[in-house]
Amino acid sequence: MGNALETDDYVMLSGIQHFAFCPRQWALIHIEQQWKENVVTTEGNEVHRRVDDPFFDETRLDKRSVRAMPLVSESLGIRGIADMVEFRRQGEPSAETVILPEREGHWTVTPVEYKRGKPKKADHDALQLCAQAMCLEEMMGVSILVGELYYHEIRRREQIILTSPLRQRVAAIVSEMKHIYAAASTPKAVYKAHCRQCSIVSLCQPKWSRKGARSAAMYIEHSIGELEL
C-alpha cells in the first residue's frame, strides 16, 4: 500500500486495488495525497514490512525467491513493487519460462502478493496481482498464466488464474486512472455499504459530500472554519 505520487505518464500499480475498491478513495490517496492509518492499514503495513526486503534473493534447489522487486510496464504506463517473485526451474524451455543470469535451466515466473486478511469475493486483489504479472511479462518476455495471493489471516496461498477478462479490466482501470489523474479531478462520493470498510471514510465523508464533488481538502478547510467560529 502507500500514497506514493504518480509521476510523468506513469501511475502507481498499488493504486489499482484502491481504484477497483472505489475510484474516489484512489483519487483522495493518489491525487490529493490524503491518508489515515487505522487498525486494518497498520496490520497490512506490518505484513508487507516482513517481505519488503529489496536485498532478499534466495535460491534453494529449483526455486528462487526475490522480494520487493521493482516492476514497470511501458505499454500500460504503470510502476510498482512486487512483494515477491518466485522462479521455478523447469526441464524444457517454453513460452512460460525464462533464462536467468548465472543460473542453469529454464524458469517459470510467479508473482506472489501478500495480504493481511482473507480471500474476498471482489477481485480487487486479483487485479493488482494480474497487473504485476503483466509488468513481469513485458519486462522478461515471458508468459505468466497464474499468480498467487498469500492471506495472512488464513496463512495460506490462493492461486489466481490470470484470464483475458482480468487482463482487460486491468488495462481499462489503468486507462481510467490516468485520465482522472491528468484531469486532477476527484470523483464524487457515492455512499455504499463498502464505505464502512474504508480506511479514509472520515476524510472522504461520503454522506456529506455526495451532493457535490467536494474534495477532502475542502472538507478539512470547512471543518477548521467551523471550529474557529
Rank of each mutant, 00 (worst) to 15 (best):
G2K: 01
N3I: 14
E6S: 13
T7L: 10
T7E: 11
D8G: 06
D8T: 08
Y10L: 05
V11G: 07
M12Y: 06
G15S: 12
Q17A: 15
C22K: 02
R24A: 06
A27G: 01
L28H: 05
L28D: 05
K36I: 03
N38Q: 09
V40A: 10
V40Y: 14
T41R: 06
T42C: 06
T42N: 12
E43A: 12
E43W: 08
E43N: 13
H48P: 04
P54F: 01
R67S: 02
M69R: 03
P70A: 02
S73K: 01
S75V: 08
L76S: 01
R79V: 08
A82Q: 00
A82C: 01
V85L: 00
F87R: 05
R88L: 09
R89K: 13
G91K: 15
E92N: 13
S94I: 03
E96C: 12
E96L: 07
I99L: 13
I99A: 15
L100V: 03
P101V: 06
E102S: 11
E102W: 06
R103N: 04
R103Y: 03
E104A: 11
H106K: 04
T108R: 01
V109K: 02
V112I: 11
Y114W: 09
K115I: 02
G117Y: 02
K118R: 15
K118F: 10
P119A: 09
K121T: 14
H124I: 02
A126L: 06
A126H: 08
A126D: 10
A126W: 02
L129C: 00
C130V: 00
Q132S: 07
A133G: 11
A133V: 05
A133W: 04
A133E: 06
C135S: 04
L136M: 09
E137R: 08
M140P: 02
G141E: 08
V142I: 13
Y150C: 14
I154C: 12
I154Q: 13
R155P: 10
R155H: 14
R156Q: 11
T163S: 15
R169W: 01
A171G: 05
A172K: 12
I173W: 00
E176Q: 05
M177W: 02
M177A: 03
M177T: 03
K178D: 10
K178I: 09
H179Q: 13
A184C: 13
P187F: 03
H194K: 12
Q197Y: 13
C204D: 10
P206N: 09
K207S: 11
R210S: 14
R210H: 12
K211Y: 07
S215H: 02
A216N: 07
A217Y: 03
I220M: 08
H222Q: 14
S223P: 04
I224F: 14
I224G: 14
